[in-house]
Amino acid sequence: MNKKISEAKIYIENNIVEKPEIGLILGSGLGVLGDRAENQKIIDYANIPNFPISTIEGHKGRFIFGEISGRKVAIMQGRFHYYEGYDMKETVFPIWVMRLLGIEKLIVTNAAGGINTDYKPGELMLIKDHINFMGKNPLIGPNLSSMGTRFPDMSNAYSSRLRDLIKSISYKLNIPIREGVYASMTGPAYETPAEIKMLRIMGADAVGMSTVPEVIAANHAGMEVAGISCITNMAAGVLDKPLSHEEVIKTADEVKDKFIKLVISIINEI
């Protein structure tokens, strides 16, 4: 694995001018932020040694290296999901590559279903913690000691410092943001109403099919992480209507302006 990570890192280094300092992972329908980067260098995942390929609608499947607010960024337009058939380690492979490139701060975003009945589609949620219901952990197996310890602490997985900063920024911009717990399920089927009821009882505010493996790997590698969910729909059983990926993409598109404004300001102050 160390050899594979190194090969991907070397390929990227040979194709960019300056090393990035902040990493961003853009979820379904949120990839438009990548288009705001200046001095872009685009690298398709398909061209990077050992990289998986994104197969989901709304995920372009490429890295954008460039500048936002004068900061050097590496933006993932599309991520990898366990439900696509990838091994859990493959889903977090880009995290390890970004860490080897020197990135120490990571902003992860996703489209999520609202479990908390006070939430509404189109709202943003700052992730303060997560519940892993995927039944897997990307750190299972031989420890990548070059990245971190065998037993990483997860008590501050979503940096309290960054959460305070983001809440302050959202207040200044007059962009309301919730703060809650994100639960991850494997997918690709949406959850049943009974599963959503269970998650609500256990303290989850939103649910999705990504993010948690990446955050585990990032914490293991010593990265400071912030997470933002776009509540694109209410989870199963909350409203009397079926769920669809089309609704997810549509809602994400409707909130893109405030999402972009917030994340650009975060990058500026992080």
Results as ranks from 00 to 15, higher is better:
Tyr82Pro: 00
Cys230Met: 12
Val238Asn: 10
Lys4Pro: 11
Ala235Cys: 08
Glu191Val: 09
Ile175Ser: 01
Glu67Gly: 07
Asp240Tyr: 09
Asp164Gly: 14
Ile48Ser: 08
Asn50Gln: 08
Thr55Glu: 10
Glu224Asn: 08
Tyr158Gln: 07
Tyr45Gly: 07
Asp205Gln: 05
Pro142His: 15
Ser54Ala: 15
Ser159Gly: 04
Arg71Met: 10
Ile68Lys: 03
Val248Glu: 04
Lys19Glu: 13
Val17Cys: 11
Ala218Gln: 01
Ile12Cys: 04
Met125Val: 10
Ser54Trp: 00
Leu33Gly: 07
Met98Gln: 10
Gly61Met: 00
Ile103Leu: 05
Pro20Tyr: 05
Thr186Arg: 11
Thr109Leu: 02
Pro242Arg: 00
Pro121Leu: 02
Ala189Val: 14
Ser160Ile: 10
Lys120Ser: 14
Gly135Trp: 05
Glu21Asn: 12
Met76Tyr: 06
Lys89Ser: 12
Pro138Thr: 10
Thr232Ala: 05
Glu254Val: 07
Gly141Tyr: 00
Phe133Ile: 10
Ile270Ser: 12
Ala189Gly: 03
Glu214Tyr: 00
Phe151Tyr: 14
Ser229Lys: 00
Gly29Arg: 08
Ile10Val: 15
Leu199Met: 14
Asn50Tyr: 11
Pro138Glu: 13
Gly23Asp: 00
Lys72Leu: 14
Ser159Met: 10
Ser210Ala: 02
Val73Ser: 02
Pro213Glu: 09
Gly78Thr: 01
Asn116Pro: 08
Pro94Lys: 03
Leu26Ile: 13
Ile75Pro: 08
Tyr171Arg: 15
Pro213Tyr: 00
Gly227Cys: 01
Pro193Leu: 03
Leu144Ile: 13
Phe80Ser: 07
Leu126Glu: 12
Lys250Asp: 09
Glu179Ile: 12
Arg99Glu: 02
Glu18Leu: 09
Met223Phe: 00
Ile107Lys: 08
Lys256Ala: 07
Ala183Gln: 01
Val97Ile: 04
Thr117Met: 09
Val263Arg: 09
Ala37Met: 03
Asn14Glu: 14
Ser69Glu: 15
Val108Gln: 07
Ile68Pro: 01
Ile231Glu: 12
Glu13Lys: 11
Arg62Gln: 15
Gln40Val: 02
Glu123Phe: 03
Lys89Cys: 07
Asn116Gln: 03
Pro213Leu: 05
Thr211Asn: 11
Val238Phe: 02
Val263Thr: 11
Gly122Phe: 09
Ile228Val: 13
Met125Cys: 05
Asp44Lys: 15
Ser265Val: 03
Met185Leu: 15
Arg79Thr: 04
Ile95Glu: 04
Asn137Gly: 12
Ile25Ala: 10
Val225Asn: 00
Val212His: 01
Leu199Lys: 03
Phe63Asn: 05
Ser155Arg: 11
Arg36Asn: 13
Ile53His: 09
Asp87Thr: 08
Arg71Gly: 08
Ser6Arg: 14
Pro121Trp: 02
Ile228His: 07
Ser6Pro: 11
Asn2Pro: 02
Asp253Gly: 15
Pro142Gly: 10
Glu84Thr: 10
Ala112Leu: 01
Ser229Ile: 02
